[in-house]
């Protein structure tokens, strides 16, 4: 099992739009909520009300400051969960076969009942997408909500990952990257979807849309005419006003 499928029928994954993510952490908590109650062991929290609270999360939102050569510094909110890599090192290193990539849709999962909790898969993941649960002692990771996306107990519209369903600003998109016409494939193509750490050769399925250019301003030559003065000071304004009013259809 820990051999990777040569190909997967579909490549399900996420597009995350860094131009739109406001860093609200909604996806973080809906993920925590869904996956605590559902797939496998609950995501536990140690010392939850004490001095060193620490819990298992499958999705976390970082914030980075980008300082360009010119123009003011920018802030980018950066959600990160499993990228469901095609060449997933976390899978091949697993000694037990607990860690595997589904041939059908490419989702990378952990079969918790087979996991010995050696942690090696987390070592092998460049993205910090796997966390050992401190209470259950098994490896937890983003399941791409495999227990939602096909779930017949959910209405059709809700068969998407919890984080995607909840994202208020619509910065998360779910779909099949194997289909070039899918919403996610097109978005990624149009907006230059990026791989994280391409040099790692993991070939992530999830794509990140870069922030659009900031603070570039419009072309001042085009804009300048809009501010051509019709007046210097109040007196001139009233003159202009009379002229302007008389040209208005029906006086207004």
């Amino acid at each position: 099992m820990t051999q990777l499928p040569e190909t997967t029928t579909r490549k399900l994954g996420l597009v995350i739009d860094l131009d739109t993510c406001v860093g609200c952490h909604a996806c973080v908590i809906s993920c925590k909520g869904w996956n605590t109650e559902n797939y496998g062991a609950p995501l536990s929290d140690t010392d939850p009300y004490g001095a060193d609270p620490s819990g298992t999360f499958l999705n976390r939102v970082h914030s980075y400051e980008v300082t360009p050569e010119t123009g003011p510094a920018q802030l980018v909110h950066f959600p990160k969960s499993c990228l469901h890599c095609d060449d997933a090192p976390c899978v091949t290193v697993c000694p037990t076969g607990a860690s595997y990539k589904r041939a059908d849709d490419g989702i990378v999962l952990v079969n918790e009942s087979a996991c010995i909790g050696c942690g090696l898969c987390a070592w092998a993941c460049p993205y910090g997408a796997r966390e050992m649960d401190p209470v259950e002692k098994v490896m937890k990771k983003c399941t791409l909500c495999v227990d939602r996306i096909y779930n017949e107990n959910l209405p059709e519209v809700d068969r998407v990952p919890a984080c995607v369903r909840t994202c208020p600003s619509g910065a998360r998109h779910f779909g099949d990257f194997a289909d070039p016409d899918s919403h996610v494939s097109r978005l990624s193509a149009e907006r230059g979807g990026m791989d994280l750490m391409p040099e790692m050769g993991t070939r992530p399925v999830n794509k990140y849309l870069p922030p659009r250019p900031r603070d570039v301003g419009g072309d001042i030559d085009i804009l300048a005419p809009f501010l051509t003065p019709v007046t210097d000071g109040p007196k001139g304004f009233l003159g202009w006003l009379d002229r302007a009013l008389s040209t208005l259809p029906g006086g207004n």
Partner: peptide, 9 residues
């Protein structure tokens, strides 16, 4: 349909 972090918590 959407929900913020607080709502989900």
């Amino acid at each position: 349909g959407v929900l913020c972090a607080k709502g989900s918590a």
